[in-house]
Structures are given as structure tokens and as C-alpha cells.
Amino acid sequence: MSRSDFTAKEFAGRLARVRAEMRLQNLDWLVAVHPVSIHWLTGSDAKSYQEFQCLLVGAQDEPLVVLTRHGEKHEFETDSLADEVHWFGGGENEDPIEAFAALARRHGLLGKRIGLEVPAFYLHPYHYLALRDLMGDALITESTDLIPRLKLVKSPAELGYIRRAAAIADLGMDRFKRDLAAGATELTLAGGVYETLLSNGSGIAASPINLVSGPRSAYSHGAPTERVLQRGDYVNIEFGATYRRYTATIGRQFVLGRPTPRMLELYDVVRDASDAMTAAIRHGVSARLPHEAARAVIGKAGLEPYRVHLSGYGLAPGFPPSWAEPLHMIGGSPNVLEAGMVVTVEPPVFIGAEGLGARIIDTLLVTQTGAERLGKSSRDLIVVE
């Protein structure tokens, strides 16, 4: 993504919404750390998230100020909407918190009311503690979800990118179907999928491909290996395609040769749970409702102990290691679904003792009256003779 991927009007609207929410929360400044937050407000696609970086957002008409490592300075200057770009490091080590302190004093943050994003993957604990000490009483809240919750409902332009990603994901699944055969390795099959995705315009997805076969099919998030596929294998694949970092995910079940009754049973339960979940999705319902619909199907089949994770979640533009948003379809979720949100549907069953697992994954757009499945790939169990 870059600043040219959306209109100036759309970027300005995003910033206005963030500032309005900041004023409601009585914040003078927001220190955004999550790369998706920085990306959403400035258009920056810079790969600097593994080092300290932040975006300073004032509640009034202050400039958007970026602090990043020296290696990303030029990219922020030429391909983002940041009004000021400051940097640390370069050819020698430099403490980024010292650089932040100088910048905070220059813009008068330390005497104001500050909210700080504290994302799971992108803020080192040492840096967090140093920032907290530096800000002192000025740090009044950890505003980790302020921006992410504002962006759960997608704009028409964002939805266009997600639809493009879903179409590319379908091409990747078509390639996998063509290549799947006894004697192929998991890694070779994964390579074919990636070749198809990238050659058709997908960027590199924030989370790597999951591809498991045979006894490894009980691994809910197993990476592909050198394992050679054999007749009789149950196979599960999940991957994401992206367009301008906007993600669509897909997951399907396959079997090489005749499926066993147990394979068919697990597939049917997961398919029915996915259908029940999809039927429950619409504008205005609690995110717990689709989850409970899927859980009821799995529980009725006696498989509740093997439901190993949540039933679905929101999808965002993603940076490694995740494309997820803070919208979870699981028990106790506080979220309410709204038209324009994009979610995954993926109720799981994985039974380690049997070496079997099943999961069907689709990307859905929440609408006023239901849900639209964005991918077109068949959801049937694919049997390869």
C-alpha cells in the first residue's frame, strides 16, 4: 500500500474520525505503534515494524509525525502522507526512546494527555516500560484498539481490494487442486500456490501458508514440510491472498483416494458448523451468535473437546505475523457485527489422538440481511483419485 492507493478524501476522512474519537476520549495526542494503524492513516508500506516506530497523531490540526529507523526514512518521505519524518539509528546503534523523547519534547507531548497503542507483536517490553516512564502522568490510557475499531467497517475502496484478494485466492486453490497428487511433497505444493498468488498480483500475506497431510492433518496450524503425500492421506490447506495488503483467506479439505467414514464424518460436521455460522451472520447481531451456532453443531456431534480455537475473526490489511483484527467470534466477545465488516468463518475440529482434523475457511462480507461469501471455490470435500 502507498498513499496513492486511496483518495486524499478517504485518508482525510480516516484522520478526522480518529481525531473525533480522540476528543471524545479527552486525548491530546495518540502514539500509534501498530504498523496497520500507521498504514491506514499515512499509506506507508514501510517494512520497519520489527524495530521501534511510531506515528504521532494530534487531536486538532497538528502535523502527522513519524519516527522510524533510518533505513525507512526515504520510503516514508516519498510514499506516505506523513507531514514530518524523523529517524534514529543508521550505520550505528541509537536508542530509539531517546529519539522519541526529543521528538515528544519538540511537539509538547509530555505536558498533554496521551494515549499509547500497545500492540501484541510490535512494541518491545523494554521500549514500553521506557515510554511509560518517560510519559509519566501524561500517559492516561493505552489506546490499543482506538484505530483498529474505527476501521472494522470497510470503505467501498477497501472492499474492492478484498474482493480482488479473494479472486486471487481462488486461483491459488485451483492450482493446488491441479497439483495435488501422491508423490508430491507438501513444500512443492505450497510453492505452486505461492507462485500462482504472486504471479496474479497478490502481495506476500502477513501469515504463512498452513498445509498438513496424513497424520499431520491433526495439526491445526502446521507449516508445509518435505513429507511426501500418499494415497489415503487427509489433507488440509489454508492460506491468504492479499491485494494492497488487504487480505482474503481460504481453507479446504482434500483426500487422496477413497475417504474413510471418519474423514467424511469430520468433514460433514465442520461443513454443517460453517453453514450454521454463516446463516447467523448479519448486521446487528452479537459476534457470539455465529460462534454459538457453530459450537452447537460440533457439540451435538460429540466433538466439543476438539474445537481448538475461535470460530472466526475480522480481517484487515496485515503485517507479519497476523492479518487479524480485534473482532473475535467466540464466547464472551463484546463485538457486534455491522454491515461492511469482513470476517473469516472457520470452526475447527482437530483430534490429535486420531491424527485427523478438518477446517473449512471462507472470507465473508457482513451485510444488512446476511453474509456474502467473497470466494468462489467449491466447499465440497475434494477427492483426488
Rank of each mutant, 00 (worst) to 15 (best):
A157Y: 00
I114N: 06
P125Y: 15
G183V: 12
R163F: 02
R149M: 12
A166F: 02
S143R: 05
A165Q: 00
Y126M: 04
P156L: 08
R164N: 11
L123K: 03
F121M: 02
L152C: 02
A182N: 11
E117N: 04
H127N: 11
L187H: 12
Y128V: 00
E186V: 08
H127K: 04
G160D: 13
F176W: 06
A169P: 11
T141W: 11
G172Q: 05
V153S: 01
M173H: 08
K177R: 15
A120T: 14
L129D: 13
D145I: 01
D137M: 06
T141C: 14
G160R: 10
A181D: 08
P156Q: 09
G172F: 04
A181N: 07
R149T: 15
D174M: 05
G183N: 11
V118R: 12
L116F: 10
F121Q: 05
A167G: 14
R132G: 01
D170W: 04
G160M: 07
L129P: 00
E158I: 02
Y161E: 03
E186M: 14
T185I: 10
E117P: 01
R163A: 12
D133F: 08
L129N: 10
P148L: 03
L180Q: 09
L187M: 15
A165L: 02
M135S: 07
L150S: 07
K151S: 07
A130Q: 14
L180S: 08
F121R: 00
T144S: 14
L159H: 05
R175H: 06
T188P: 00
P148W: 04
I114D: 02
A165R: 01
I140C: 07
R175I: 02
T188S: 15
A138S: 15
R132W: 06
A167D: 14
I162V: 11
H127F: 13
D174H: 10
M135Y: 14
K151W: 01
H127Y: 15
D170Y: 04
D145Q: 12
R132M: 02
